[in-house]
């Protein structure tokens, strides 16, 4: 029960972060989305042994976390579900790639460093940087703005609507799960967790109730003119909105090719 409450609170905190009046939040979402996507592509394009070169790409998350007043600790905490997956990707490389690249001296011994270890660390860094850049995007841009940016890129309307509704549905399902588990726990104070005999009916109730809530929300949307397209207030584009993506994208290309 506490975990559900905590997750809802986390989602709420993230939404509060998106509503800040910081200049990075006010940038045009299309620029931020492009920077994020291109950054991920550039990071992913580095050679598997190019860990030293890849480290330079930390400049983007470092800049955004420092200048954007974002907490790295909170960022890592909020991405805790994805991080183990991206860190796990290269975990078997040291077993399969045993080619020695160099050795390091430690405590009077020479410790060989294999290609597998380097490629594992490179993959981990790539994953970490990609997750952090995605976090920077969602911490400074609301879901409506991200969807607006996707529409600017001519992503099909149906896909954008589905993304937006899934995001809304998460909060709604979380709130329903919280209510149901609270009601259960209050009448089963001595139980630790939910007894397996109640799982079926609780999950069934949860789905039915969240579907009811979702259809009420949908009705409310259609009654206010929703016809399958979210109209976000058109953003006025300033010089800063051009400069931000331009500088970053040029920098990414320079770092990739000349460093």
């Amino acid at each position: 029960m506490k975990q559900i409450e905590d997750n809802i609170r986390e989602l709420n905190k993230l939404q509060n972060l998106q509503q800040r009046s910081h200049w990075m939040n006010k940038l045009h979402p299309l620029g931020k989305l492009l920077v994020c996507v291109i950054y991920i592509f550039v990071v992913a394009s580095f050679d598997k042994y190019a860990m030293d070169k890849l480290l330079v790409m930390a400049v983007f998350p470092a800049f955004c976390f420092i200048v954007g007043d974002l907490s790295l600790k909170d960022g890592l905490y909020r991405m805790r579900l994805i991080l183990p997956l991206v860190l796990f990707v290269g975990v078997f490389n040291p077993i399969f790639d045993r080619k020695e690249l160099f050795s390091i001296a430690a405590f009077g011994n020479q410790i060989p460093v294999t290609g597998g270890v380097i490629s594992m660390l490179t993959l981990m860094l790539k994953g970490l940087f990609s997750v952090l850049s995605a976090y920077i995007l969602i911490a400074t841009t609301s879901i409506e703005e991200i969807c607006y940016a996707l529409r600017c890129l001519h992503v099909p309307k149906i896909i954008v609507i589905v993304i937006m509704l899934i995001y809304r549905y998460f909060g709604l399902m979380g709130a329903e799960a919280d209510r149901i588990t609270t009601a259960y726990m209050l009448r089963a104070p001595k139980q630790k967790g939910i007894h397996y005999s109640a799982w079926g009916s609780l999950v069934g109730q949860w789905l039915l109730r969240s579907m009811d809530r979702a259809s009420a929300v949908y009705e409310s949307m259609t009654l206010r003119g929703f016809n399958g397209d979210f109209r976000v207030k058109r953003k006025i584009v300033s010089a800063r909105d051009f400069l931000y993506p331009f500088i970053w994208i040029v920098l990414f290309i320079l770092l990739r090719h000349f460093y």
């Binding site: 939404q15 409506e144 809304r168 929300v217």
Partner: peptide
């Protein structure tokens, strides 16, 4: 239920 009516962030 006002929660059904309010579905955006702010």
């Amino acid at each position: 239920d006002s929660d059904s009516q309010l579905f955006l962030s702010t």
